[in-house]
Simulated assay, not measured.
Amino acid sequence: MSHSHSHAPGEEHSHSHSQGGPPQSPMMPAPDPALQALIEEDFKPVPLSFSEDRNNAYCLKHRLEKCDACDVDFVGLNRLASLLAANPSLLCPPPANIVTQKLTQVVTATKDEGNTLFKSSLHTAAINRYTVAATIAVSRPPWEANQLMREELSTVISNRSAAFYEAHDYISALADAEAVIQVRRNWSKGHFRKAKALLGMNKLRDAAEAVKLGLSFEPTNTELTSFLAEIEKFEKKTEDAKLEARRQEKTQ
């Protein structure tokens, strides 16, 4: 059996054997033959096209990241590939508890810009900043803790719902409130935003139900309890006005 030597001065000898196949890296264990056979049996070739930098994959026929016709979805894979390509020092994704602080700072700063515009009653401009903040929040690396993204996104979308409400776009305010509830169902603010939007649409009973659902998660929330009392008071006033109108119709 012959040996070939490959080492620089001062380094330890590295031996490769001419028999027994290619050497295995000390960092990479040999694949399990049974598992490898299962992987190969399940493998189905997919025709691909690539971006110019070859970091992103698309279906060959339509050049789409996600294509129902070709039954492929490369969105997650492309996102991870782009992140790793942009950070060549990363040999693998960092641990899940590593937070991209710079990304957090950008989300917070953009949201704060929206808050400043909102306080100045520049609601359309505030909506635009909240939209940018939301877009940044959902672009977090997939290996990071999901809870952080959920908290950032729900806060920004809740603020955008408030801006839509002040702009009298109650349908958009309701849609954002529903999105907040979907992301953080047990957070009272989403239910409060939903109730506000429904109140703007004159759906008093639905608004009251939205508040009651929020109270089921936070029974002592003063914002919700006071708003429920306000809705019920407004509902009673509306009913009284209807009764008075009917009474006057009968007397005429």
Rank of each mutant, 00 (worst) to 15 (best):
P47V: 00
D71G: 00
Q19W: 07
T155Y: 11
Q105H: 13
Q24H: 11
K236A: 14
P95H: 06
S188N: 03
F234D: 08
A133V: 02
L198W: 06
N56A: 15
A207S: 12
K236R: 14
K212G: 03
K61T: 13
A69Y: 11
Y170C: 02
G190H: 06
A86V: 06
A133L: 09
V107R: 06
A208R: 02
A175N: 13
E52A: 13
N146V: 09
I98A: 14
P45R: 02
T220Q: 13
S2K: 12
F192N: 01
F217E: 04
A8M: 11
L103N: 14
L80F: 10
L64D: 07
E232Y: 05
A81L: 05
T135D: 15
G214D: 09
L243H: 13
A30P: 09
E151Q: 03
V156D: 13
E249Q: 14
A195V: 01
N115E: 10
N202H: 10
K189A: 05
F50D: 07
T131G: 09
D68Y: 03
R184A: 07
P141T: 06
A34E: 14
A30C: 07
D206F: 01
R184W: 04
S158W: 04
G76A: 10
K119W: 09
D53H: 04
L83A: 07
L64P: 06
I98F: 15
R160E: 09
Y170A: 02
E11P: 01
N202K: 11
D73H: 03
V99E: 15
A133I: 01
K233F: 11
S120T: 00
V156A: 09
Q24P: 06
I39M: 09
T225P: 05
Q252Y: 10
Y165F: 14
R185E: 08
W143H: 07
P94F: 09
K189T: 04
N128E: 15
I136D: 12
H17T: 07
R129L: 09
P93G: 09
L243D: 14
S16I: 08
V180E: 05
E239C: 06
Q19E: 15
P29I: 01
R129F: 11
T222P: 14
E11Q: 08
K111E: 11
A85D: 12
A173G: 15
E235Y: 09
A8D: 14
G190C: 04
E218M: 02
I181E: 02
F164E: 03
L215R: 00
I39G: 02
S82Q: 13
Q147N: 08
